[in-house]
């Protein structure tokens, strides 16, 4: 029997689910392996009977926790997809601001109607079994995680920084092109896609397990960034992880 799969979204842009929808031909092959029972972005049917739950988006309200716990109860395997779900994502930028100000900025005079609390990744609320990192996720890696789960193995998500992939791809180091890159502390697995295209790593896959943050910040400053800007560089995606560390 094919495993039943469901997709859920919390605070996020749904770009990761879009990546899955964009698998196109491979989506058909995927459907030979799994049965999708809920996927709001591409179908109207819904069922609470599923084995694997893919969750996009971060948790930004207390009442979302109940929904997450319900998903956890229904699913055998929970997979966080995309930076918001895996590491808190850019939503966590608000954690460094006054939350009332944030609400007023977004909702104006209706601010009181909308609850909020510090944005957090899914695993801050419920246990997560596997991660598909990235903003947005990489389709290849999504398939790798699905295949791994089907084979009963732990997905092979690197614990080395993006530099490894940049070197294998023979990229010119972003720093040498005058860019400020956080690739040296960011978890690889994206095949250094942004640097391949001539820009820099923003850190969307989060920190490696044991990043040398001091050294990385020193490098940013050595190449001309102010201390404040170096800290901001880290906050863009590492905001939640930094606070936790």
């Amino acid at each position: 029997m094919k495993p039943k799969v469901a997709f859920f979204d919390f605070a996020g842009c749904e770009g990761d689910e879009l990546q899955v929808a964009n698998l196109e031909e491979e989506l058909l092959t995927l459907l030979e392996q799994v049965e999708i029972v809920s996927f709001r972005e591409v179908m109207k049917e819904h069922s609470d009977n599923y084995d694997i739950a893919f969750i996009e988006g971060s948790c930004t309200r207390l009442q979302d926790e109940d929904r997450l716990k319900e998903i956890r109860k229904n699913a055998k395997i929970v997979v966080a997809i995309g930076a918001c779900a895996t590491i808190g994502g850019i939503n966590s930028l608000k954690n460094y601001q006054d939350l009332d100000d944030v609400r007023r900025t977004v909702y104006g005079d209706k601010a009181k109607l909308f609850d909020t609390y510090a944005a957090r990744p899914i695993d801050a609320v419920i246990p997560v079994d596997a991660y598909v990192h990235g903003c947005p996720i990489n389709r290849e890696e999504f398939l790798h995680v699905v295949k791994s789960l089907l084979l009963g193995k732990k997905p092979d998500i690197p614990n080395y920084p993006v530099c490894v992939e940049c070197k294998k791809n023979e990229n010119i180091c972003a720093f040498e092109r005058g860019e400020f890159c956080v690739g040296p502390v960011t978890r690889a697995g994206c095949n250094s896609c942004c640097v391949n295209e001539g820009t820099k790593c923003w850190g969307c896959r989060g920190l490696v397990d044991n990043p040398n943050e001091n050294s990385q910040k020193e490098i940013l400053i050595k190449y001309g960034l102010t201390v404040d800007d170096a800290i901001k560089k880290f906050r863009l995606y590492f905001g939640w992880q930094e606070r936790k560390r």
């Binding site: 920084p161 530099c163 070197k167 294998k168 040296p184 502390v185 044991n210 040398n212 990385q216």
Partner: peptide, 13 residues
């Protein structure tokens, strides 16, 4: 090695 990023660049090139 205090500043080593464990990025592997030295060995990969």
């Amino acid at each position: 090695s205090e500043k080593c990023l464990a990025c592997g660049s030295c060995v990969l090139v």
